[in-house]
Nucleic acid binder design. Structure first.
Lengths: 213, 213
DNA sequence: TAAAATTTTGCAATGACTCCAAAATTTCAG
DNA sequence: CTGAAATTTTGGAGTCATTGCAAAATTTTA
């Protein structure tokens, strides 16, 4: 019994609403577009919008919300003999070197950034996402290292690793917002990642090495 | 010409409104109290409330908003031969050791934390405060070190130093919220601060040493 | 003490978000 | 295929934060 018509339709509707909303936001900014307008443009009722998205912010950050587990996934997938932080640095360098849209290195990302930049409520939402990334990563680190319950290290390490991630992202966002070309930003951020690695202690760089437990 | 009556009255009104609001929030939680209720309880109009506070959140976090420059101040006040990070660690240890209410080590802080814990919009506001702390600190570091305009180091260093600060604060908040005694939490956080210092690289611990420019 | 400056207030409006019960639609048993 | 059951959509009313505006009250100043 394949997936029912109903499920498919729901997914489509949800996607369509988010797309329509994103289009409007990119055009006119987050605050200048009302939920009522989005509903009308998507040809559904306001209540249907809220049926799919808990808040207006989620209409724009729907995609970004999926990357909550990315850091934890990178850590879980680290190589044998590789630490958590080094794995994240490696994956990050990979994405940046490949000028991947997954890290915002794409034509048109500046418009996306501008919408966020001008809407405090969207920035708030992003911080809350950061928090989720941190918590997910901390949980992964606890599991991977088998740390005791009261051990503060996974929390601290998650903080350091998130900082790596965030520093890179903020830099990409800032430069793209400033109108730079993805390829340029890529080169620049690779240098930044070296700077970042330089600032990390051996303790951080060697935490949770796969195979040493 | 001493400060006019008007100025004094304004300050009193503002303080009074904030106090009344804080009392209500502590009693019943942030979301369960409406701005209209606060206005009535403070015997002013709703518009007057908004005259003094840009948003509902500011009624509760008025005091906390003042600590935006604390990190920057600590760094500017570092001893000769002392780095930015070490100054912050020293000041932080001082506050924690003294079981200072300035860092939340006081009876009743758990009620304060509970209100924040249960109100997403208050947590958002705190993140935004963190951001301000970061920016203020970065500016201070730039000024103190005379870093070039394109130099990414002050940004990265500010990130690391804020992380120290935040890790300590989150720990204090968590433990106080759990109902622990201030003195207990103080001892515990002192240990945590040692753990934190252990995780910092020499580069970070020796950035912006006063006297080496 | 009257005019000027500032603050407080009432009123109306916008917009996000929630609740509820009545359609409309889809699934499924028979 | 058909009607009942389950699910989704919708309209409408309501709450609350927040803003804008102009009148009224208060304070300062000349």
């Amino acid at each position: 019994m394949a997936e029912g018509l109903r499920e498919r339709k729901k997914r489509q509707t949800r996607q369509y609403i988010s797309d329509v909303a994103t289009g409007l936001f990119l055009e006119r900014g987050f605050d200048a577009v009302t939920v009522a307008e989005i509903a009308e443009a998507a040809d559904v009722s306001v209540n249907t919008v809220y049926n799919y998205f808990p808040a207006k912010e989620d209409l724009f950050l729907d995609r970004s919300a999926g990357m909550t587990e990315r850091l934890a996934r990178w850590v879980r997938g680290r190589d044998v003999g590789e630490s958590a932080a080094r794995a994240v640095l490696r994956e990050l360098r990979g994405e940046v070197e490949a000028v991947s849209p997954r890290v915002g290195l794409m034509e048109g990302y500046d418009r996306f950034m501008r919408v966020i930049h001008e809407a405090p409520s969207l920035r708030s939402r992003l911080w809350s996402l950061q928090q989720e990334i941190h918590d997910t990563l901390e949980a992964a680190l606890r599991e991977e290292t088998g740390a005791a319950d009261g051990d503060p290290l996974p929390d601290l390490m998650a903080g350091q690793i998130c900082w790596i991630h965030q520093a890179a992202f903020v830099a990409i966002g800032r430069e793209m917002l400033a109108g730079r070309k993805p390829a340029e930003v890529s080169r620049e951020v690779l240098v930044l990642l070296d700077d970042i690695e330089d600032l990390l202690s051996e303790k951080v760089l060697n935490y949770a090495v796969r195979g040493s437990f």
